[in-house]
Structures are given as structure tokens and as C-alpha cells.
Amino acid sequence: MSVVRIDQGHSATLPHVRIQPAKGLLDLDFAGLWNYRELIHILVWRDVTVRYKQTVLGVAWAMFQPVATMLIFTAVFSVMGKIPSDGFPYPVFLYAGLLPWFYISQALSRGGTSLVGEAPLISKVYFPRLILPLSATIAPLVDLALAFVAFLGLMAWFEVVPTWRVLLLPLFAGLGATIALAAGLWVSALYVRYRDVGHILPMFIQLWMFVSPILYPVSKVPEAWRAVYALNPVVSVVEGFRWALIPGFQVDFSMFLPSLIIVAVTLVGGLIYFRSMERTFADVI
């Protein structure tokens, strides 16, 4: 596939556009991403505004959904199911897990369908295709920030005072974004060629939630299975959010290493696979 580079220095009037072949699968064209950074801003802003346009509650939907989910799950799994929460108020414990999960699920869902959803744009105009899953990963961060505001109200209700650890919350949010982007690269590229992915993705996301420690604590996982359980990268994000937000919450940080390795391998592999498939997107889509 050809790569477009913009060279601003050889003309006093108009920029020169130089088309050259990619130098290999590892030529990820980061310079092109930087040149088209305004397009990322435009796509993110469009996704945010369109999502809440002509709605009664507007951006309040970003807070209503996790709060409503928290109330229902608390009634079902805590009140009736008697699921423990390591001694912490179950609504706080649950909401701290729902925060990163709602973000990851939304980012993966939007990123996975970003290429097919922008088919007319891809078939008509050149731009680095990586921009689409990247912008789809960034946009739900707005919802995450708004949902966090609702969580502050929940903490005040239960008289939970955050500690200095809350300052490390952006690190775990960044890990969640990396997970969503890594998975979104694979899913979006596969979805272009195999439309079955569109049917599998919602079911996969739903199942992924139940194999992650959102509704229950990691302590409920049998000791013999925890090494395997730690391979799920969402475990590190959820546990990290709870550690940063809930005073006194203890985390086994040794479980983070397998997750970090899985995320790194998935991201690098996703970038290479996305790059290898990129040349066919406009033809197949």
C-alpha cells in the first residue's frame, strides 16, 4: 500500500504530497498520524456530540447507564445473591469495577466497527486508517470522566474518602485504553473481511465481563486458577481502579505482569496485522 507524506518545505504556495510505498509491516507511519492529528480531533468531537445530540438527558446518559447498572446488579448479586465484596460497600466495590469496564466495552465496540462504519470515507479519501480505531478508543474517555463524577457522589454517600492513590488512576485508565485499542485493531481489520465478527463481538464483550472481576472479587477465584485468570488483561485494570479509588483495598500486583505481557503482544501483533490488511480495506469494504 502507498503511504502519503506531506512535505511543507518545497513550495511557497501549496504543500507537496509525496506518495511512496510502505517500507514494511513495521512502518506504521506515525508521521502520517501526526500530520492528520486534526482529523482525530474532528472524529472524536463528532462521536461525542452525535452520541448525545437530540437526547433529553444529554451527557447525563454517560452517568445514568453505569448508575442504573450498579443499582440492578447490587440488588441481584449482593442483596439476593449474597456475593461478597472483600468487606467494602458492594455499590462502591461494583461501581469501581464498572467504571473501566464500561469504557473498555464501549471503546472496543466502537473501535471494532470503526472501519466498516466509515466505509464511504475509506473508499474515497486517503488518510492513515489507524486514525479510525484510535479515535474510537479516545472518544469514550469522555463518558469515563462523566461516570467518574457520579462515582464521587457515591463515595460521598458511603463516606469513602480517596487517598493519594487516586493520583495513579490515569495510569490504569491508560492501560484500559491500550487494551481497547489492541483488541480494536484486530477486530476492526477482521470485520472488514469477515462480517461474522459483527455478530460475535457483542456476545464476546458480554462474556468477557463475566470472566472479569467486576461482579465479584478476585478472592472468589480458586487459588489454583489465579495464574490463568491473570492472563485476562481486564483483571489488572479493574483491580487497579479499585486499588486507586477504594482506601484499604489490597491488590496482588504480581497478577499484573501476565496482563501487561498479553497487552504488549496483542498491541504489537494488532498493529502489524492491521498494517498488513490496510492495503485491501478500500477494495474489500
Rank of each mutant, 00 (worst) to 15 (best):
R226M: 07
T178S: 14
F158E: 13
G81D: 09
E38Y: 13
G176T: 09
V263R: 04
I42R: 14
A244L: 03
G174Y: 02
S135N: 00
F93V: 07
G248Q: 05
W157E: 07
A147D: 03
D86V: 03
R129T: 02
L181T: 03
A31L: 13
F256E: 03
I72D: 10
A230L: 04
L201G: 04
I205A: 05
Q106A: 15
G112D: 03
L33W: 13
P258W: 01
F249S: 09
P128Q: 07
Q250E: 14
V237F: 03
E239C: 01
A22E: 14
T74Y: 13
L185A: 12
A75Y: 12
V59I: 15
F158S: 10
I285A: 03
M209C: 04
F93M: 05
R37A: 08
T49W: 09
Q8L: 15
V48N: 02
K124E: 08
T163W: 10
S254T: 12
M277E: 15
L141N: 00
V221T: 04
V263W: 05
Q54T: 11
V116I: 14
W186G: 08
R193F: 15
I285N: 04
G87L: 11
H10F: 12
T49P: 00
S254P: 00
L167M: 11
T69W: 07
R242I: 05
F148M: 14
F256P: 02
A264S: 15
K82M: 12
W164R: 10
P84I: 00
H41T: 13
L245V: 02
G117K: 08
A227I: 09
V251Q: 01
A156S: 10
L25V: 13
G174K: 05
F127T: 00
Q250M: 12
V44Y: 07
G176D: 09
I42L: 15
D47T: 02
T69V: 08
T69G: 07
V44S: 03
K220M: 15
A119G: 06
R275P: 06
S123P: 01
Y194P: 00
L134E: 01
F30G: 09
V59M: 15
T137V: 10
E239M: 03
M70S: 11
R110A: 14
D196A: 11
L26N: 08
V197I: 15
A189K: 07
A156R: 10
L141T: 07
A227P: 00
R5P: 01
V211L: 01
D29G: 10
V265N: 06
S105Q: 14
V228W: 12
P140N: 05
L144Q: 09
F77A: 10
R110M: 13
S212W: 07
G24C: 11
G97S: 09
M70N: 08
L115N: 05
M70Y: 06
A119D: 10
F73R: 06
L175C: 10
E38F: 14
L190N: 07
A227W: 11
Q250Y: 01
F148N: 08
A227G: 14
G24Q: 12
F127Y: 12
A189M: 05
R165K: 15
L130P: 00
D86Q: 13
L154C: 06
A244K: 06
L57F: 15
V3C: 03
P233L: 04
S135P: 00
A22M: 13
L94F: 10
I261Y: 04
V59T: 12
Y216F: 14
